[in-house]
């Protein structure tokens, strides 16, 4: 009962947060100095043309009224029309979302694998030079943000040893039989491994750049909590039963050490998704973030609003999901 109550409270605060985001974005973009309408008309357009188009996009009304109109549209799934492409914002945003989601999930998987291996190796080899080396590596990886890792990876594996693609999402000359924009997933489902390899090779560098700092955080935190767990009596007891070090770490310590890491990974995953904006730009990857920067440069107000709201929905959604998973996984909370 208490569990249900806390879920409801969490959902409510999430909604309040989203409304706050909507308000701030809406009013921020209304302050933009340059008139986007004037920019999209050809030179020589008359004042009347500008006024007509301004009225069409509803930009002539007072800002609070514009907000109400926009918000009621949003609640009906209508995010307005992009000024530059004249297409519905929702359609544009949803067409790019899969690319960003695939990139983020791939980055998260890489981070979990690398971070997990670091933590487990560090725990297995505690007190040795290997552990010290892992600590130094983690510290370095943590200090450098994804943007710089991206540049370093471009130099290392795009120029020095050119084995991965460093721009785009897929080789342009390839014919794509896809019906959705989840290229990586769909190529796998259609058993087109040639395409899958090409897409993965394009995605690997940006995903790795996003993954490195998160991998370091996972590695550090998981190793820390594993080390604390390894001193506990039930781990010692398992040793006396005849179990080896690897079994003790994986079966006894890991399930208990993983919970604090999980909450942190949730928060950090939202940071990672936020990082896709600049990483997509850096690797000319056709995702949401790249589109967002173009939208800002072109002053495409409806599109900017739509993208920021979508990011906010993803962020708060991930946090909500993590909190619920945490509650569901922890037997103590589940039965409380």
């Amino acid at each position: 009962m208490q569990f249900l109550q806390s879920v409801i409270i969490r959902v409510c605060t999430t909604l309040i947060t989203l409304i706050g985001v909507a308000v701030i974005v809406f009013f921020t973009v209304r302050v933009v100095p340059g008139n986007p309408i004037a920019m999209m008309l050809p030179p020589g357009a008359t004042e009347a043309d500008v006024a007509r188009l301004t009225a069409l996009y509803g930009l002539d009304k007072p800002i609070p009224q514009q907000f109400v109109i926009w918000l009621s549209g949003v609640l009906h799934g209508d995010f307005g029309t992009s000024i530059t492409t004249k297409q519905p914002v929702l359609q544009l945003v949803l067409s790019r979302l899969p690319a960003t989601l695939e990139l983020s999930v791939m980055a998260l998987s890489i981070a979990i694998v690398i971070g997990g291996i670091m933590a487990l190796t560090g725990t297995r080899q505690r007190g040795t030079k290997t552990e010290a080396a892992i600590d130094v590596g983690n510290g370095m990886a943590l200090s450098i943000p994804d943007f710089l890792w991206g540049l370093i990876l471009i130099l290392a594996f795009g120029v020095l040893i050119p084995i991965f693609h460093i721009s785009g999402r897929v080789t342009p000359s390839l014919a794509l039989p896809f019906t959705s924009n989840f290229y990586l997933t769909e190529s796998l489902l259609r058993l087109r491994f040639d395409l899958w390899l090409d897409i993965a090779a394009h995605m690997f560098m940006p995903a790795l750049a996003l993954a490195i700092p998160l991998a370091a955080i996972i590695g550090q935190l998981l190793k820390q909590s594993l080390k604390e767990t390894m001193h506990l009596d039930y781990v010692t007891l398992a040793r006396t039963k005849g179990y080896g070090e690897t079994h003790v770490i994986l079966r006894e310590a890991l399930p208990n050490a993983i919970l604090p890491t999980l909450t942190l990974v949730g928060v950090q995953f939202t940071f990672l998704i936020g990082g896709t904006v600049i990483i997509e730009r850096l690797f000319s990857y056709e995702g949401l973030g790249n589109m967002a920067i173009d939208a800002v440069i072109n002053r495409d107000l409806p599109l900017i609003q739509g993208i920021v709201i979508l990011f906010a929905v993803i962020f708060t959604g991930v946090n909500l999901l993590v909190d619920l998973t945490y509650a569901a996984l922890n037997p103590r909370l589940r039965h409380a």
Partner: peptide, 17 residues
């Protein structure tokens, strides 16, 4: 509310504004 903003995108937006 701030944590729900993508920070890089928000800063780019602010500069544009």
């Amino acid at each position: 509310i701030w944590m729900a903003f993508p920070p890089v995108l928000f800063s780019i937006l602010l500069i544009a504004v």
